[in-house]
Simulated assay, not measured.
Amino acid sequence: MVAGALNRADVMQRWGLYPLQPGTSPYPGLEVSGRISALGEGATGWRVGDEVCALLTGGGYAQKVAVPAGQVLTVPQGIGLVEAAGLPEVTATVWSNIVMTAGLKAGETILVHGGAGGVGTMAIQIAKALDARVVTTVGGPDKVARARELGADEAIDYRTEDFAEHGPYDVILDVIGGDYLERNVRSLAADGRLIVIGLQKGLEGSLNLAEIVFKRLSVYGTTLRTRSKEQKAEIVA
C-alpha cells in the first residue's frame, strides 16, 4: 500500500449511516494504490512489483490489502501513485452509470449534479470525452469557473438559478436525492434517463408518474459498493 482515498461513504460509515453488506470488511477504505507484493493462484496479467490502483469493498485503511484481480487497474501514465488512489471509485462509479446504465451517446445532453465533487469532476470529463454536451450544478462562482475549466459546456450556480429551466436533458446523474427528484423528472427529455446515486438531501421525493409514462422515462437507483466482484470486474474491464 502506498495510499488510500477518503470517500463520502467512508465518512457515512464512521457516522453509522452506511450499512455494510454481510462478509465485507468492517473497516473503511474503498480504493487504494500501491505495488503488487504477491499474486494469488490463477491471477494473470500482472507481475510482482507492478504499480497499480484498486477498487475495494472496504478495508483499504491498512498496510496491505488482498484484491480480486478483476478489480485491479494499471496506474495511468503521468499519474503518481498517491494521486492514483483517488481514481478507481469515482471512475468506476461514473462509467458504470453514465455509460453502462444510461448509455450516454455523443451529442446528447447530460446534467451532472455536484460538479465540484469527486464524482462530478470525473463525470464532466468522461462525458466530454464521449462528445456529450455537459451541464452541471455547483455552488458559487469559483466552482462555476472550475467546472468550466474541466470542460462543462454550462455550469449552473444552484444558489441563484434553477437547473430545471436549463433543460431538457437526456441523462441526469444525481448525487443529491431528496426534493431534486421532482425537478429531475420534469427536466428530462423524452426517453430520458435519471440515475440517482446519492441521497445528500434526503431519502424521499415526490414523483409525477404521468411524466414518466408519457415521456417514456427511465429512473435508476444504483450503488457500486454492493455489486458483486464479477460485476465490478466487468466495469473495470
Rank of each mutant, 00 (worst) to 15 (best):
G58H: 05
G58E: 00
G59N: 08
G60E: 00
Y61V: 01
Y61W: 14
Y61Q: 10
Q63A: 12
Q63G: 15
V67Y: 09
V67H: 09
P68G: 09
A69R: 13
A69N: 11
G70T: 09
Q71F: 11
V72I: 13
T74H: 14
P76W: 01
Q77I: 11
G78N: 11
G80F: 03
G80K: 06
L81Y: 06
L81D: 07
V82Y: 12
E83C: 09
A85S: 15
A85F: 04
A85M: 04
A85Q: 01
L87W: 03
L87F: 13
L87N: 05
E89P: 06
T91P: 00
T91W: 15
S96W: 13
I98H: 07
I98L: 15
M100R: 15
M100H: 13
T101M: 14
G103P: 07
A106L: 12
G107F: 05
E108Y: 08
E108R: 01
T109K: 12
I110N: 00
I110H: 01
L111N: 07
H113T: 08
G114H: 02
A116E: 13
G117E: 05
G117W: 05
V119M: 10
V119S: 04
G120R: 01
T121C: 01
M122W: 06
M122Y: 12
I124G: 04
I124H: 04
I126H: 00
K128Q: 13
A132Q: 09
V134A: 12
V134S: 05
V134N: 07
V134T: 00
T136S: 11
K143H: 08
V144A: 03
V144K: 06
R148P: 04
G151S: 08
G151A: 07
A152M: 05
D153P: 05
Y158I: 06
R159S: 06
T160W: 10
E161T: 12
D162P: 00
E165Y: 01
E165D: 15
H166C: 00
H166E: 11
G167T: 01
D170E: 12
V171M: 02
I172F: 06
L173V: 10
D174C: 08
